[in-house]
Amino acid sequence: MSDKTNENLIAQQQDVVISVKNLHKVYTVGTERVIALAGVDMQIRRGEICCLFGQSGSGKSTLLNMLAGLEKPTTGEITIFGKRIDKMTETQLADFRRNNFGFIFQSYNLLPALTALENVEMPLIFKGAAPETRKKQAIKMLHYVGLKDRIKHKPTQMSGGQQQRVGIARAFVARPPIVFADEPTGNLDTHTTYEVMDMMSAIVKKRNATMIIVTHDDEIAAYGDHIIKIRDGKIVEESWRDASTAAAE
């Protein structure tokens, strides 16, 4: 191993924001045990767009849920920003999510009773931001995603693409360092899919944030800098698209 590769490795490790060690998840369905994850080890670095790529039932969504602290692993360690989130309580996890994570869902998961603006404000409200500040930030974010004219609209008055753009605005408005996206374009047509993906990638790159995308779609996976292919609860292939990261390998 050359000195140069060594240096690169160290730099790489300092930049690691998510680190997973020997992660297992076993569900008990009735009397049957279903193994969803069978020993996953991986690292995700700052600024990366990481794609968890696999067929449905491969365990990729389970992995995402555990990274986001929505589900507890059976065994194994998940460390994010140096904190063991698998050991946190519900209350600590809520605080951790509020301060570090943004979420984008396949089914958008907007609150139907609230307007686009109110939905985008939500994470800021949870953070206790002052009404004026959060309104300003939310409007700015809605402008950015191109929904200037839809600020007062309810989710039901918007198309799927528009709703997902509200979702993106909500995910990024509080400037989280990590954003999780679970099949973000699953309900969108091809044209809108590219629009949404371009938008998400652009914000992540601009902010040097980290994004983890779960998908079964090759074309989405193509947006990733770091692609992790999962099958039957195991990582079967890991690749880096970027030239600089490729050099580090």
């Binding site: 986001a68 929505l70 519900e90 209350t91 809520a94 605080d95 951790f96 999510r97 509020r98 301060n99 994570f101 979420f103 998961n109 907007l110 609150l111 939500m122 994470p123 949870f126 909500r170």
Partner: peptide, 11 residues
């Protein structure tokens, strides 16, 4: 949704 977005349980 509120919980996923990090709303405090006490809230």
């Amino acid at each position: 949704i509120m919980k996923v977005l990090g709303c405090r349980l006490s809230d």
